[in-house]
């Protein structure tokens, strides 16, 4: 069974990456997707803790993660592709690569860039770092 990690942030680019994976199911061969959203609130938490409890913050960031996953989960349900999903916390690229490893994925398929600020870069910094850190093949969908 082929396991593919698809990190998503709710962007159109991430949706195209997922569509690329769903296409692979047309082979009729078994495939499982792990849909991942990474939240990186670590830096902001330090200041936010002054005004909100840890529990409130955790709930808030989990909510953000669920929002980022929603479109992808809808696509997977519609295409009847078996999946697992999770929201993880940490630096995005490292977390993506670690999760892929931990969950026994065979490859990573992701958008070249998500909701980054600098959209004129060909490859966003997260995709760039994932390619750098990952020993698994990384498919970049534009």
């Amino acid at each position: 069974m082929l396991k593919i990690l698809v990190p998503v942030d709710g962007s159109e680019n991430a949706k195209r990456a997922l569509a690329h994976v769903i296409e692979l199911t047309q082979s009729g061969l078994p495939l499982q997707v792990h849909l991942l959203n990474v939240q990186s609130p670590l830096q902001s938490k330090i200041s936010l803790n002054a005004i909100a409890s840890q529990a409130t913050l955790d709930a808030y960031f989990h909510e953000l993660g669920d929002e980022a996953l929603a479109a992808g989960l809808a696509l997977l349900n519609q295409a009847r592709v078996p999946y697992q999903y999770s929201v993880e916390f940490g630096p995005p690229a490292k977390t993506i690569v670690d999760e892929a490893q931990k969950r026994g994925c065979h490859r990573i398929v992701m958008g070249t860039r998500g909701f980054g600020l600098i959209s004129n870069l060909v490859v966003g910094s997260i995709a760039y770092q994932v390619v750098h850190l990952s020993t698994l093949p990384v498919t970049l969908v534009q």
Partner: peptide, 9 residues
């Protein structure tokens, strides 16, 4: 190109 590219190490 706008094609998907799979990068292999």
């Amino acid at each position: 190109t706008s094609l998907p590219i799979t990068l292999v190490r």
